[in-house]
Amino acid sequence: MTPYDIQGLQGRRVKDRIFTSLVWGLTFSCLAVVFIILFYIFEKGIGSLNWAIFSQNPKPVGENGGGMLNAIVGSLMVVSIAAILAIPVGVSVGIYLAENRGRKLSDRIALAVDVLQGIPSIVIGIVIYVWIVKPTGKFSSYSGSIALAIMMLPPIIKNTEETLILIPTTLKEASLALGASYFRTTMKVMLPAGIGGIFSGCIIGIARIAGEVAPLLFTAFGNPALNFNILKPVDTIPKVIFTYASSPYDDWHRIAWGGSVILVSFIILLNTIIKIFESRWKVQF
């Protein structure tokens, strides 16, 4: 007597092998795409980099040369102000969620944070336009920062929450048992113990917004001149890439490639910092 499925066995084995190779093949093509794109960006970009990109402002249309100093300064300004605004709020909400886990209100807040993460960035740009740019009558660097700060919140909140709930309760109890207030317990015991995770949440947030253009189009707008005033419009690297990429001038394209490679390297650097943090900077309990 033979098992009744023995005839199908050969075919099933073949099918299994085909399936496995399909999984391998498609996965490897994903990896290949990553390398193709990065290679292209770096090849185009590094060749385009020169000192002028970092040290000069844009030349008028038609003239070759010039750089994106104004946009580098602008990006740093818009992103760091966004971080200054978002980090205290994001960490606070994260603390609240970790502290009130399981309650109905905090479940709703957590859902709202998740949904906020999925809102198209351009919509956030419109809202900030209506809130700030329209009433004040002018584009401004700080309005862009506010738009980006809102986009930064979800990763900061989620990382803070997830880090804090992993800290043993006994630690919090130890501090409270010494008579420390909840505030001081949080600031001096909980946050230092979770600093690695919270910090990487902040970096993820910065990495998320550093390359954004859509929310800046009608807030920070753009400015070919070097500007340090947060009340005035300002250029950012991604905005310049967008403007130049849509232009017909080769030299502008060159500068845009330079900007792309600066931006991508910066974000990859941030990602690397996060990985190092997650693996190395762990508090032992």
Binding site: T27, I241, A245, S260, V264, I268
Partner: peptide, 24 residues
């Protein structure tokens, strides 16, 4: 490593994807 490499795709800004797509 594979996971981190795939996650690198998320590190490239949208505008750079657009620019790259325009050229390739």
């Amino acid at each position: 490593i594979f996971r981190n490499v795939i996650e690198l795709l998320a590190a490239i800004p949208s505008v750079v994807y657009g620019f790259w797509g325009l050229y390739t």
